[in-house]
Amino acid sequence: MNLFQFLRPVKSAPVARERLQILLEYERRMVSQSALITVLREEILAVVSRHVTIDPERIHVKIDRGDRGSTLAVDVEIPDRPAAAVRR
């Protein structure tokens, strides 16, 4: 540490700016992802329910982001009684 560091004004604003840019990019992605999951979940539920009676609580939708792409995992629990099938 030398004398000149005391004389030079500390510029903290550029640090604030950079931290915000990085953080908000992440948070915006998270928010839009959770909105996407909500929509996917509802639509998948609607499609599956046309054919099979399922418990709306037993459907799980997950997105995993990787470096080279993302995976969408949909887990729907179907009751194993054939009578549960919806007749058309």
């Binding site: 004004p9 500390v10 510029k11 903290s12 604003a13 700016r17 840019q21």
Partner: peptide, 16 residues
């Protein structure tokens, strides 16, 4: 303070 780099400038906030 903004001019001295101690506070986000208007341009910073608008850009973010």
């Amino acid at each position: 303070r903004a001019a001295r780099g101690e506070m986000l400038t208007i341009e910073d906030v608008l850009e973010i």
